[in-house]
Simulated scan of single mutants.
Amino acid sequence: MDHQPVVTITLNPAVDIAADVETVRPDVKLRCKAPQFDPGGGGINVARAITKLGGRARALIAVGGATGDMLATMLAGEAIDTIAVDTGGQTRQSFTARETSSGHLYRFVLPGPEWTRAADDALFEALATLLAPGTLAVLSGSLPPGAGAEIVERIEAACEKAGAALVADTSGPVLTALCARSGQPLHLLRMDRDEALTVSGRTLSTPSDFAAYGAELVSAGVADHIVIGLGARGSVGVSAAEKILCSRPVEKPLSAVGAGDSFVGAMVLALARGLAFETAIAHGTAAAASAVVTPGTALCERATTEAFIAEVETTRLA
């Protein structure tokens, strides 16, 4: 392995189903084209992106039921090193319909099974065997019902004890709680534009506005590094030493699905290879752009990402 170990953690994975339909209308049968099935969930997609980009990651996933078996089989088919813990429930599905008449995407996301004490015990037992000094652990995606911000705190504590570093990319009340914490900072916390607006409760508009908010989170001890995705405008990266914007515009985007996970995968792989934070943000930006020019739920492609890296523009923010 040419980089530090990477472990991704997905507590609420899904089998992603995507299909085309001519028009979305109410109260009638909508006859779709042949569906595409993919393993889904933030951490899973981060591990898949890392693999696509020539790296390696171990994917710790919480699964259950026949859908969970299907998910594990799909990951095995992609040669993803997977460690599964049993939730005792049925792994969820998500469905994306692309309306071909308009190009609009309709995304239906189910909640997933209730988190249980047994699943909790199995998770931390598995983590104890996976975390080691120098490991980059990536917690990405939504949390299942019944799992709150305290589970992230416990994962962070397990990382600290093992000498590992935690990268978190989550949302909702959990993200709000993480942004209110202080003390032992996360290694890196990522959010998107809308999440930053919600959590901050402010009217942020320019990249410098978002960078200033990120700098406040760093100063408060929330995380050593903050990354805020601004969609087509690029991504802001903030540490104690720098505030930057990395962008690589796409003229003809096909689908933004998978761009965020591709970004995190490429960024984490770059960090695991010992590259600087600024360079890692550029790699993530290139991978996100690569995902945007692929159809449906497809992630980044290695050749496109590598070509886009040289086209990423980095701007230092005040």
Rank of each mutant, 00 (worst) to 15 (best):
T91S: 06
R302F: 13
I281F: 13
L136H: 07
L188E: 11
A223N: 08
P144F: 13
G231D: 07
G229P: 09
A287I: 12
Q36Y: 06
V268P: 10
G64F: 01
A310R: 00
A310F: 03
L271S: 00
A18W: 03
M74K: 11
F263L: 12
L204A: 04
A266K: 05
A177P: 12
S208P: 08
T116E: 13
E160S: 00
V138I: 02
A158K: 04
A287E: 12
G40W: 08
A177Y: 12
A240E: 05
G103K: 11
E78P: 13
A59E: 08
A291L: 10
F108M: 00
G55V: 01
K52Y: 09
T314R: 07
G103V: 15
T100G: 08
K29G: 12
S208F: 03
E306R: 02
L143M: 15
L269F: 03
L30M: 14
S247R: 12
H104T: 02
V222P: 14
R107F: 06
R25L: 01
V250N: 10
F308E: 06
G88I: 06
V167S: 12
A158Y: 10
P295R: 15
R193G: 07
V292M: 00
F210G: 07
G43C: 02
V46P: 04
C300H: 06
A118R: 14
T176E: 08
I309P: 02
G214S: 08
F210Q: 11
K243S: 14
T294K: 06
G40F: 09
E114D: 13
L204S: 06
D224N: 13
P145I: 09
D121H: 15
A62F: 07
A162K: 00
P5T: 01
H104G: 06
A18R: 02
D86R: 09
R48H: 14
E160K: 00
I151T: 13
G134L: 11
T297E: 02
T23S: 12
I228A: 13
A289T: 01
D194K: 14
K161G: 11
T129V: 10
A298G: 09
T206N: 14
K252G: 10
L110M: 02
V152L: 14
T10G: 05
R273Q: 06
A122R: 04
V21L: 03
E153L: 02
L110D: 03
I228V: 15
D120H: 12
S247M: 07
E301P: 13
E153V: 00
E251M: 02
V15L: 15
R98H: 07
A47E: 09
E78H: 15
T294D: 15
A147R: 15
R25G: 07
D69K: 11
Q4C: 11
E311H: 05
A276S: 05
D209I: 10
V21S: 01
P35H: 04
C32H: 01
A62L: 09
V46D: 08
I83E: 03
L53H: 07
R193W: 11
G265R: 11
L275D: 13
T294I: 04
A276W: 01
T314D: 04
A162P: 12
I281G: 06
D169E: 05
V312H: 05
M267I: 03
L299V: 11
I9T: 09
L197M: 00
A164S: 14
